[in-house]
Design a protein around this nucleic acid. Sequence first.
RNA 1: GGGCUCUUAGCUCAGCUGGUUCAGAGCACCUGCCUUACAAGCAGGGGGUCGUAGGUUCGAAUCCUACAGGGCCCACCA
Length: 881
Amino acid sequence: MELAKKYDPREVEDKWYKKWIADRHFNSKPNPAKKPFTIVIPPPNVTGVLHMGHMLNNTIQDILIRRARMQGFEACWVPGTDHASIATEARVVNMLKEKGIEKNSLTRDEFLKHAWEWKEKHGGIILEQLKKLGASCDWERTNFTMDEAYSESVIRVFVDLYNKGKIYRGVRMVNWDPQAKTAVSDEEVNYREVKSKLYYVKYKIVGEDGYIVVATTRPETILGDTAVCVNPTDERYTAFHGKKVIVPLVNREVPVIADNYVDMTFGTGCLKITPAHDINDYEIGNRFNLEIIDIFNDDGTISEKGKVFVGQDRFKARSLAAKQLEEDGLLVKVEEYVNKVGYSERTDAVIEPKLSMQWFLDMKELSAPALENVVNDNIQLVPAKFKNTYKHWMENVKDWCISRQLWWGHRIPAYYLPNSNEFVVAETDTEALELAKKKTGNSKLTLADLRQDEDVLDTWCSSWLWPIAVFDGIRHPDNEDINYYYPTNVLVTAPEILFFWVARMIIAGYEYRNDKPFSDVYLTGIVRDAKRRKMSKSLGNSPDPLDLIRDYGADGVRTGMLFSSPAGNDLLFDVKLCEQGRNFSNKIWNALRLVKGWNTTNDQKAVRESDEVAIQWMEARINQVLLEIDDHFGKFRISDALLSVYKLIWDDFCSWFLEAIKPDFEQPIALITRNKVIDIFEKLMKIAHPFMPFITEEVYQQLREREISDSIVIAAWPKSENFDLALIEKVQKTFEVVANVRNIRQQKQISPRESLRLFVRAENFESYYPASKMIWRLANISELDLVTGKVENAMSFHIGADEWFIPITQEIDQEMEIDIVQKEIDYLKGFLISVLKKLDNEKFVNNAPAHVLDVERKKRHDAEKRIVALEEKLASLQSMK
RNA sequence: GGGCUCUUAGCUCAGCUGGUUCAGAGCACCUGCCUUACAAGCAGGGGGUCGUAGGUUCGAAUCCUACAGGGCCCACCA
């Protein structure tokens, strides 16, 4: 069958993916005869759709897992999704709103029913999309963080940590998202610079006429003021220490206190203290035992305690407060001011620092092994630069606020006793009841008497168990899967979640398996557009990955992304990269067309000596480059590995090898030669397979009409065998000759079709043999002869100390040639002087190592010889004038 | 403000412990070619005093110091 002139990935890719799934090549189970190689996917949000970041991330994982599979590991890539409590709940709330249903109008169970329905319908789209990319996940192992077994694991861990005394309840200043009405972690707050106003407000002194002026960006929080603070060393205010001032708007008397926290140079040097709504104020409040007045409701409106503007939204209250202050004559001035404001990552609402009762996990002791084992490289971060950042964070780790005021998630298994703030913690409500009975001594308690905590756990409280829980290693710590697959090998993820997720998985790993969750962490860069802007939906600068796959093929997109993404470096994505990837696919395809198009013969005479050299050389090059590739993989330099493959196939295989070996027009090729070419081609496909799974399979199958079950997916990764380095070097010299001949053709406008005679004056011509045979074909040489003297009327060039001549019929431009030769002589003489300078320097000769000296001496030798030859040439050119 | 890191060809980046694989790669660019696998191609070619200024050394892109300009992380000023 005639192959299409251009490679069309569309049908090929779907065809093979289906086949691979049907043949269960991606499925894994513990196999004691093999070593495991495990990757757990960073579970995307269940609501997510594939974006460029996922593409990069999962391509890298697929490359690693496919190569491991070929290397004979029991490769297992576990996919799954994260319930992403805040993000998903927000989506569901919006969805309900569109249907005219308010979340508040629903019971918890009703809401969860909607949420699950929504999840079943829309969740996990991303996993289907990953299949288009070629991801070789074991889909039967797909996990979801709210699966029944997984949820049990999460709850069990909570109970365990509680029983170990690591979990406590406490009033803390949290980042409150008034829109989602939940606390969010520090990591989920984005600070942005915002233009705002700085209000200067008078606080009257009690019992005096005077006042002091306080600067604030948030006049509405005046309602919660319980002190005014100055720096103790600030002489302007020494007189006010211990006096009282009247808080505007609410006319409350509060003390003037002194604390070093206050920056004398900012504003007026007076700070109003609102312990309920600012973390620093809270701390100062604690030091001075100040009253805490929480003036906000959960939705960000002013509460009864605010006394004025009650029920108004906080931003409305701000303008009302400013207006009122002005009317009261207490507003001195308003300045334009730029400050940083925290926004919720999930809802983009302005974060309100708020005191609230939350659950916390004590991180101090838990994190110790996680710090140690990264510092000592037991777990390697790639690139290593992240180690410092990690260390810094882990050394300053703070307790983790693990409760969220949401419904979608794992509900905290704490049960309050009747009319009490006391509670029991247990994995199930029946266990909780037993505990409650014991605790109260009341055996008549029923479940209806207990009230379960309303909060759910932070999303990361489930995903931190991911590498363990996907193998059910929490509930069944001794099961076959966890024992076999854990610790996993490598985690591929984004640096943004190094602390959110990676660090916490390491902590959980040591706490629950007493071992690391993975050996290496490969941190990918951020995918940006050509202008270095982060790709995002809102900017609209992110292409749809599925469109890209449709246009360039999954192989094209995969290689395109990797052409330019060293670990940890941002990827500046450009469609041109995908084009390059697609072109590479097409190049391979056309090589296939060439090979498939050959007629073969059994005639021994068709076996050419040059073919044998070419084959030996190509095999040697593959072995040589395999070492490079394996080295790159060992260092997680995936881009470099791909580039090596790319050059091996495009330059060595296509441009040199196939050109050298392809038969003359319409001549058949020796069968034995063709079969060797096919072996080589196959080997190359195996090497390229992790990067380009689809086309390599297609070509692999096409090369021999093999039984289809023999998939490249499970072919053995080629091992680098001993190779003849000297041969590679010889052939390399041959290529230089070819390039020089081609260059002269170009200069002299000699058609490639015109055969040329080639002469060489060489000390040791054997050094080119037998590779020289290849020259004839690649440079269209009809004759090659050794000479001892000069060749007249010829263009010449040097390789090392050898001189090559091409007799030409065209007139040689004497002046130009003389000029060129003279320039080269001048350069070489200058070069020689610099070398001699070194060699004459006693300190250099005495201090430099032997091999460096040898190199310098060889430089001198070669340069001297070249100069002699060039001067000879110059003389002869001049004599011809 | 504290910590980390980077600056090499037009672009994106390699260059490990100082000395021929030290000035490289891919892309882009320029010049020829629709040559019997491939114009999504073939062949050839030109680009950098390695951010700046000092220092160490026989020798510095590589080590040290300062400066300039990016980036990341942490904390966050009312």
